[in-house]
Design a protein around this nucleic acid. Sequence first.
DNA 1: ATACCGACCTGTCAGC
DNA 2: TGCTGACAGGTCGGTA
Length: 270
Amino acid sequence: MAGDTIESVWIGSRKQPLKSPPAVIAATLEGKRIVRVHRAGKHIVFDLEGEVPPKQGARAVRGQTRQAASLQTAQWIVHLGMTGRMVVSEPAAELVKHTHLIAKLASGRELRFIDPRMFGKLSVHAGGFDPGGVEPLEVSEERFLELFRGRKTPIKSALLNQKLLRGVGNIYADESLFQAGIRPQKRAAAITRERLAKLHRAVGEVLREAIALGGSSISDYVDADGEEGFFQLQHRVYGREGEPCPVCRTAIRRVVLSGRSSHYCPKCQK
DNA sequence: ATACCGACCTGTCAGC
DNA sequence: TGCTGACAGGTCGGTA
């Protein structure tokens, strides 16, 4: 995407996936060059740059000298929610149901946002978007330990709290806790430093392995090229209730914790 | 401040 | 075949 320019934007009639008004999103994206696409937690971030339009707002202030061709920057933030997909398509590609936004690019390609359940979110920012929390792949062990200090909440809930650690979702929380040998229900504050240090390493290992395999395609997930991931084949506990633990063959259990299914091995995880 | 719980949506699948 | 209910990669706001 980097280097391509958004020429025009079509937005569907459903408003649910939008955090910013559709007209604002369209106006912010159109004519902008995509400088960089990166990720912050679960958010996809498009750094945009464009010329300041010649006529801004309803009225130009009389007598004010306009800056010559200054650059305007903005950020487009995309959160895929549960079933969101951002895919690069040829214009001729079939228009699938639940397509909510199409951005036509100067290269002739299209960037499409598809989301059946509409839990995804699109927004635009002038810049300085703050996703909150720390990156699990960058945080030091010391800072990681601090995140959970004194928290009485179950460790699973703390892992899912995006204000603490950003980017860990239900699958990766369960898989990391299995790898670290910690029960999801265990109170965060009651976990030893050594065990939390192990969790720190486990989160990193699980995420790196998942990323290397292209993510977990359970029903909807595909990457920007429409390719499915394969990490779902490596899930040790997630979605495996009743199946034998890969380590000790004990049946995997499922409990509901703060509204989310949590899977664990009752023997390996204490 | 903190912690559950329903709400937000559509789709799929198991069970009857 | 078709109905119903449970469940699904997430987050938010209300209530206790």
